[in-house]
């Protein structure tokens, strides 16, 4: 037996001892499917409006009905984001929140929550600065379940995905209305956890979502993709959240929450964000109730 195969066996053994920590995303979606419910995935930027609120906010999101948390890693040049999320990144960077700080935040959250999946969302350069291998190892230790790097398209991601795979972190990818079939198949092969379908052209926070288009695209995507599909960009009212929940496996809400964070005073923060999440949760769960009524 070669040294490498011994190492592989040892790795396998270690991972099996560790399965409690992994596959949180898959478990969450499986659990929801059993209940015929759709996932609610809120996005907040780590460190916005102040690093001390991020862990309490994350717990509040879970208590108010979030299934998975998407935690934004602040970056100086968030090219794919609209003004709302840009501002939240700037607020966090005023407090010098780094990628290492974000990982510490996740570790802190994990002290009292070991079940809710955490997906980090951000840009390539902070990850490059830390180094892929070093990042992946730390992220796993801190309890991160998935990572979406907006400016790592599949073409540039083979080494990155390998690195995440080794540490059992899901590589989440975006698909958009302009993604052609060949690339959908490519993403289908690389992606883990869930697919994030960007429901419109443009940046985050825009507001011209066409549900008919989303429906058509999702039907096409499902021919190639067996992972759950989350839909985000342009969801900023309960009616849209509910409509998206009818079509997708998960509803991703970002700018709508960030706007709430911007609006309220620090003393109202947890309450107001909690109420908003509850409102969205109710809207999403209404589709279930509608089904029940017809039975």
């Amino acid at each position: 037996m070669s040294l490498d195969s011994i190492k592989n066996l040892l790795n396998l053994f270690n991972r099996q001892g560790d399965t409690k920590r992994t596959n949180r995303i898959a478990k969450t979606f499986a659990g929801l499917k059993e209940q015929d419910r759709k996932a609610l995935i809120p996005f907040i930027t780590a460190g916005d409006p102040h690093p001390k609120y991020t862990v309490p906010l994350m717990h509040q999101l879970v208590q108010s009905g979030a299934d998975i948390i998407e935690l934004g890693v602040p970056f100086s040049d968030p090219m794919a984001d609209g003004p709302t999320i840009q501002r939240s990144s700037e607020r966090a960077l005023k407090h010098h929140v780094s990628l290492s700080d974000v990982l510490k935040i996740v570790a802190e959250f994990r002290k009292t929550n070991t079940s809710t999946p955490i997906v980090l969302m951000g840009y390539a350069n902070p990850v490059e600065a830390l180094g892929h291998a070093s990042f992946a190892a730390k992220a796993r230790d801190c309890g991160v379940d998935g990572v979406l790097i907006v400016d790592y398209p599949p073409e540039e991601s083979s080494e990155w995905v390998q690195c995440l795979d080794q540490h059992e972190i899901d590589a989440i990818f975006l698909l958009s209305p302009t993604t052609h079939q060949q690339r959908v198949e490519q993403v289908a092969k690389m992606a883990k956890g869930f697919i994030y379908y960007v429901s419109l052209k443009g940046v985050t926070g825009a507001s011209h979502l066409d549900l008919q288009d989303v429906n058509t695209m999702l039907m096409q995507l499902r021919q190639y993709i067996s992972l759950p599909i989350g839909v985000g960009f342009g969801i900023r009212d309960s009616a849209t959240a509910k409509a998206v929940a009818e079509l997708a496996d998960a509803v991703v809400v970002g700018s709508w929450i960030i706007e709430e964070i911007e609006k309220c005073s620090e003393s109202e923060l947890l309450n107001n964000v909690g109420s908003l999440i509850k409102k969205i949760r109710v809207a999403i769960d209404e589709i279930q109730r509608n089904v029940d009524n017809t039975l």
Partner: peptide, 8 residues
Amino acid sequence: FVAETLIS
């Protein structure tokens, strides 16, 4: 190195 929305 761009978001999916720009690839096409």
